[in-house]
Design a protein around this nucleic acid. Structure first.
Lengths: 242, 242
DNA sequence: TTTGCGCAAATTGCATGCAACATGCAGAAA
DNA sequence: TTTCTGCATGTTGCATGCAATTTGCGCAAA
């Protein structure tokens, strides 16, 4: 295939380094990733109808990989796909968002429970660092950085749970949750509470207390979902209200 | 589009009944369903490489919908898909099966916890019927009917949890779990135990005891996974051993 | 014998063309 | 006016063709 040593036999004279796993992804995956990003960030607004031809020229690919990408996103629930109809960006109701966070809370409870006993020292250290940084973000009131780091911590815990199928089940929910979070960037009061929950969760993990960590994670995510759903509900009845 | 009255306006003289929602699914979905079935049932054995051209003639569709179907199955983890390589049916190790059931146990715990307080009377009745039938299957030692009904009960509980995202997260795991179950049709001793767990779970649900129902479901699925993984492990070290 | 190289066959990735289906509108019938 | 019908247009579903990539095999060199 190319000059780099590949495969399992020990490379005896590797003149070139194994060239750090460039993903080498196909067009349909790139298209899917870009679409996902556009939907989550709201570039493609809820309710938008996605015409294949238009989208394909917009993304610079032909319809075939685009259609494959749409199928992938449909599997994640990020687009609605009906036979012989244009794909649409779903517009989730606050009730659906609540359902979503209920499920997410349950799954993150599991990840926390699993992570508590089996998280590696290395990941625990990483988590410690992130937690400290999160506290700084909170103290300095840097909302969007806090937001991003928050997500990262949750992902780290999922990783630490060391259960691939669970992570795979988590990912699609997480994508939709981020959609909701981004358009309900939470209120200051909840921020305070959220920061404390994060500290508590970290403590529980550090103490390897599975039940406690799970319970905290569950409450944390569920509470987040309630606040977000309420925000969206309020904005729906009064669209002008920031 | 055709003779049946459709749409929202009251049909004043509907000469034909609305023709009970035939799914009208596309070729790629049919192909995906058939492939899924073939993989779960073992018609396509673990490790098999799936050549698009061959499969497409076998299923009687062209490569385009077949490729879309493969992408769908890949999203469910039922095939491995790498760029520029033929798709393969994964051959899950007993360790991976154990991970899978660990995740599944967690999710079914959630479904049981959610279902306990909110299951409708109608579904509860249906469950009662299925449970009674399950007991008969157990008494009469009809293994495969027991097996099928077992699956159905689990699905019913997922439905009763009334949380769409959670059900969507559950489905792909369930597909792989069935793959494992089908090739490790459990031992008689476990059967006894499993039947009792099912009765206990039903009781807990009937009593609307969320924590108890969740705990039972968790143990039940996890234990099933352990037995299945052990069976697969044993068969792997001694392939001849039934 | 073993290792490396290069070509040929097989296979996937993608683009494009055509048929089927849906939707909206104009015009006819009631 | 209101409702139904048929057509025109836009869009999706699928098949097929071609280029790019992988893979297996033969053959020569060490």
């Amino acid at each position: 295939m190319d000059v780099v040593a590949r495969g399992r036999g020990r490379p005896r004279k590797a003149l070139v380094v194994p060239a750090a796993q460039v993903p080498r992804t196909g067009l349909h995956e790139q298209a899917a990733a870009r679409l996902k990003d556009m939907i989550v960030r709201g570039v493609l607004p809820a309710g938008a109808t996605l015409v294949e031809t238009d989208l394909s020229v917009a993304l610079g690919v032909s319809r075939t990989p685009l259609r494959e990408a749409l199928k992938l996103l449909a599997a994640e629930g990020l687009v609605d796909l009906h036979p012989n109809r244009s794909a649409r960006v779903p517009d989730w109701t606050p009730e659906e968002i609540l359902e979503l966070f209920e499920a997410l809370a349950g799954i993150e409870r599991l990840t926390a429970e699993l992570a508590a006993p089996r998280i590696s020292e290395a990941l625990m250290d990483a988590l410690r660092g992130k937690q400290a940084q999160l506290d700084r973000m909170h103290r300095d009131q840097v909302l969007d950085a806090y937001f991003a780091l928050n997500q990262e911590i949750h992902r780290t815990i999922v990783t630490a749970a060391h259960n691939r199928p669970l992570a795979e089940a988590h990912a699609p929910l997480q994508a939709r949750a981020q959609w909701a979070r981004l358009r309900a960037l939470s209120s200051g009061s909840r921020w305070e509470e959220s920061a404390r929950e994060h500290r508590d969760l970290f403590e529980a993990l550090a103490a390897r207390n599975a039940a406690e960590a799970g319970a905290i994670a569950h409450r944390h995510v569920l509470r987040t979902g309630v606040v977000i759903a309420e925000t969206l509900q309020a904005r729906r009845t009064d669209p002008a209200g920031r």
